[in-house]
């Protein structure tokens, strides 16, 4: 198994955290993994993206030129990354912030209002966790208990209400999957 993921959105949406979560989950699942952030002249509100690979075998190039899955959290990222999804690949689209439709017809598209769900839960900043929930229910990366374990580890030390809302966000996201 090899899964190549691109997470993208704007700075502040927790894009890098999504990538790190997936890599940490891969470790728990005894998989090989690489995480490569876009770094450099990034600014708050500008575009942000990272590339994650999860594999049963040692990973060579950490760069994802063609992704099996793209999680796209804002409008400018759609035009930038739509073409980097493999034919038959999966596109998770943050419907709350993206009004245009993907041009690609050869990929599977799952539109979910990640940001709206997060707002309803009480904090727009957990939209990334909602998206992770949807992704993890769509792809069999690791069992539920490992997902919870990584969530607890990564949120460790934060305020109880932040931990709670992220747990809820993950469960809400999981209600959506590609079926």
């Amino acid at each position: 198994m090899i899964e190549k993921i691109i997470c993208c959105g704007f700075g502040g949406q927790g894009i890098m955290v999504m990538g790190k979560f997936l890599s940490n989950l891969a470790i728990e699942a005894d998989k090989f993994t690489t995480y490569l952030p876009a770094y450099g002249a990034e600014v708050r509100g500008g575009t942000a993206h990272c590339m994650v690979i999860i594999s049963d075998e040692e990973i060579c190039a950490p760069f994802v030129s063609v992704a099996d899955t793209a999680i796209i959290m804002n409008e400018p990222s759609l035009s930038k990354f739509e073409n980097r999804i493999a034919p038959g690949g999966l596109l998770l689209l943050n419907e709350s912030l993206i009004s245009s439709l993907p041009r690609r017809k050869d990929i599977e598209v799952l539109k979910v209002p990640f940001s709206d769900i997060a707002v309803k839960l009480g904090n727009i900043r957990c939209a990334n966790t909602v998206a992770l929930g949807t992704y993890l229910s769509s792809k069999n990366i690791a069992p539920k208990e490992k997902i919870d374990l990584v969530m607890d580890k990564m949120l460790g030390g934060l305020k109880q209400e932040v931990i709670e809302i992220n747990r809820k966000a993950l469960r809400e996201g999981m209600k959506y999957d590609k079926s």
Partner: peptide, 10 residues
Amino acid sequence: DGMLGQMMEP
């Protein structure tokens, strides 16, 4: 190089 410095692996 910059890629090796920035990338994460377990």
